[in-house]
Amino acid sequence: MSAEVVLGKKAVAEKKDGFFIQTFKKLLKNKLAVFGLVIISLQIILAIFAPFLVSYGPNEQNLALTNQGVGTEGHILGTDNYGRDMWSRIVYGARISLVVGISTVAIGLVGGITLGLLAGYFKKLDNIIMRFMDLLFAFPGILLAMLIIATLGTSLVNVVIAISIWSIPGFARIVRGSVLSIKKQEYILAMRSIGASNTRILLKHILPNCTAPIIVNATMRMGTAILSTASLSFLGLGAQPPTPEWGAMIAAGQDFMWDAPHIAIIPGVAIMLTIFAFNVVGDGLRDALDPNMDIQA
């Protein structure tokens, strides 16, 4: 009996899975999403343990051994035009992509959630905030990023800033939409009727109800952010050589397309797999978080 008292809370927790575990279990039923999860996990492992997984530094040149193809001894993925180990550059590139992806999504989330909550809940702020968001939306994303970089100068940090700003309106719209529908619910009126403050209602009662669309979009946005970083770097606006950034690597490799196509193709495949992975996981999450899916399936 006493054990039951002590374990009271735990016993209940064991009996039913929490929200996240439930979602995760549903996600695991989706084969494509599992494939995506594997790729993302691999990428995370590569990024964290990069120095232990490679035998050469990413910028270590060996001019005696340039443009070696895939499968060369000691260089699984060959070498580039300076004799740098491609495997090492890809692994370090994964690091950059992930850091850029996570930081842009994080900044975009903070900005987008704040603005979206305010716009959705306070009618007076709605027009001001959302019209400004529309303004940001009106620019093609890459153009906006290029504009910001042109003002701030080319560097990876500025790319992060540019892509974050570009991510904010998307999140703001999604959050605002959810807030608009949730604030009409009776439980929000009930919360007001027991004397909860606006801040408390927004952060403790409305925001947790918006998590599903936010999670899905953040995941998808990771892919887009990584792709945009690569595009900007490819155009020479982001990471500068010799940084082992995938987009920059493609740019450097395009001169050797004929002699050593793997220099451009390998980072291209890496980008493709990453974006594919984030998109299928995002799709899987959307299905897993949608409560109607159970009925239809």
Partner: peptide
């Protein structure tokens, strides 16, 4: 706000929707 839920309280028509489903 200090009165609500403290000195004056309210119960609603729809018990199905008056509780937050995520908590």
């Amino acid at each position: 706000r200090k009165l609500r839920g403290n000195k004056i309280s309210m119960i609603f028509q729809e018990p199905m929707t008056a509780l937050n489903p995520v908590f």
